[in-house]
């Protein structure tokens, strides 16, 4: 039996809506950097990026690299394509021990599905959307 490989969903036609609070994330993504907003006042990471720290209500953030991520949970979707083939898509939640409380909703790609487990360490790469680079992850 063939080993199923998770692949990233096709997002080339996705126009990512941005606002003043999410723009720095996408700017960093264009440079190939994953940065998350951390409250300058209390150190709390907030997600998604927004105008207030939910812990202290401060507005000021420092965009901070969170370190390596791990799989918090995932699901497996099998999508039938027009040519009859099946694409295996694995949407996941990526947690960062260095950024407590943040879970990115992102897909796992380029990984055999039997290697995908809760707690597995992942490394970052990028998938092109119409106007943004989308973070995707591979099990290391």
């Amino acid at each position: 039996m063939n080993i199923e490989i998770a692949t990233a969903p096709d997002v080339r036609d996705v126009d990512v809506p941005k606002d003043a609070w999410t723009q720095p994330f996408w700017d960093a993504a264009e440079r190939g950097e994953l940065l998350l907003p951390r409250c300058v006042n209390c150190g709390h990471f907030r997600w998604p990026p927004g105008p207030f720290c939910p812990r202290c209500r401060s507005q000021t953030v420092a965009w901070t690299a969170p370190g390596a991520g791990q799989i918090y949970s995932f699901t497996i979707l099998r999508e039938k394509k027009d040519d009859g083939s099946v694409q295996v898509i694995v949407p996941a939640l990526i947690a960062f021990p260095g950024a407590d409380g943040v879970r990115l909703i992102a897909s796992i790609a380029a990984t055999p599905i039997d290697h995908i487990n809760i707690g597995a360490s992942v490394e970052l790469s990028w998938s092109p959307a119409k106007n943004a680079s989308i973070p995707i992850f591979r099990v290391t």
Binding site: P9, V11, V16, P48, P91, I134
Partner: peptide, 20 residues
């Protein structure tokens, strides 16, 4: 309607509903 806070489901491939 895609929003700056809600786009993540779409980009992760969660294009169905709450079941996913």
């Amino acid at each position: 309607v895609a929003t700056p806070n809600g786009i993540w489901s779409r980009t992760a491939g969660l294009t169905g509903g709450p079941g996913q």
